[in-house]
Write a protein that binds this DNA or RNA. Structure first.
Lengths: 206, 206
DNA sequence: ATAAAAATTAAACAATCGTTTAATTTAAAC
DNA sequence: GTTTAAATTAAACGATTGTTTAATTTTTAT
């Protein structure tokens, strides 16, 4: 589906507002006002509020398998590859943090009949690449064989999102100036912590 | 504040519904119907919907500092203490997962003027205990000194919640029967993975 | 320049929202 | 047993919700 300027504007505004105030907490009137368009245009373009959310998910959970394959190919050293993959993952989820927040909240909502296929497909493909990488590393004797591979993703993404969801309280602890240096903190300190955690886990022998 | 039977019922129903469908996605009419009471009783008892949420947060984020102190005192071995603390933490957040979900969603919502003091107080006290424990372990030469202490909590809690928020998709991967064995999975496999991760991180020398 | 199609608008729709009212029933106190 | 207070109810309040309508403007094609 090709999107014109106004449709992109609507999707951008909707992403921001859904993430900040929730799907149910955001009225299409509020979206229309913020996007500076008439209320009826949203139904005209997307059909309904639910379909707007579906369009949003589809357009923003594009697969980044190729990026991941590149990150895995950059080096011959397994631990260096871990660093590269973590850097990529954190950068990617930080950029898409709003969409992920919406998904986290709505995916488990029984009242919603939204199609999460594109999200789940992307998730599965990424997992398969990582699983292969870790099994290779295990075969090469670099990684521990006792690690629970499917639970590595929750540790990587979860660390980021638990930080993000409690951002306000960490801003105190770390004296982060929210406007200027949140991005910096994520891409330096937080990324470094996650790299350290996963490398430790993958090389930990009980 | 002392609560009678009906008030407790209302809070229990509200907790479940707020967590499942969100605060804005849950009407007080739906809560009243589910709790089998008249709509007006919620205003009568709690004043308003927002105050109902505040009551809920206050009554369910009770401090468990003492439990944590006990877990830290059970053994003399530092790594065994880590195991005990993780077991306690996971058990605790799993039991309170609905309240945490509500907090994660509403804490970052600018439109809401809810008092999160009791949650933040509890968080801070727990952190101080853990910080002291880790610094002791570092001084004793058991734990690595390069670990980022404030980010350990996001790793522990985040791993749990990222699993929980994507439960549906992990149920496929792990063939978990959601009704019977989710609790078991959390308290065995997931807890073990987190223990392994944190012990690895705390003993990892770069 | 004219006709057809697409985009945009203000207004209205019924439904639902949180909250309040005023009346009635139940429980407690004396 | 009577009085007072507390609990419970159905109904109504105005505001807001997502969506649709029908009319108008703008753009595109011929």
């Amino acid at each position: 589906m090709e999107l014109n300027e106004k449709q992109i504007k609507i999707l951008d505004v909707a992403e921001k507002m859904f993430a900040e105030n929730g799907y149910d907490g955001t009225s299409i009137r509020a979206i229309a006002k913020e996007a500076d368009i008439n209320i009826a245009m949203i139904s005209y373009y997307f059909g309904s509020k639910e379909k707007l959310l579906e369009h949003l998910l589809k357009s923003k959970t594009a697969n980044f398998t190729i990026e991941l394959e590149n990150a895995l190919a950059t080096s011959t050293d397994y631990l260096e590859k871990v660093d590269n993959v973590i850097s990529l993952l954190v950068r990617r989820i930080h950029k898409s943090r709003r969409i992920y927040k919406i998904i986290h909240f709505e995916y488990s909502n029984e009242n919603r009949h939204i199609d999460f296929k594109s999200y789940l497909d992307s998730k599965r493909k990424n997992y398969e690449l990582i699983e292969k990488f870790i099994k290779d590393g295990q075969a090469a004797g670099v990684f521990s064989k006792k690690v629970n591979i499917p639970l590595i993703f929750p540790t990587v993404l979860g660390t980021y999102f638990n930080f993000y969801y409690n951002k306000k309280s960490y801003e105190e602890t770390y004296q982060i100036n929210p406007k200027i240096s949140l991005d910096d903190f994520v891409h330096t300190t937080l990324t470094e912590h996650i790299k350290q955690t996963i490398k430790a886990l993958l090389t930990y022998e009980v």
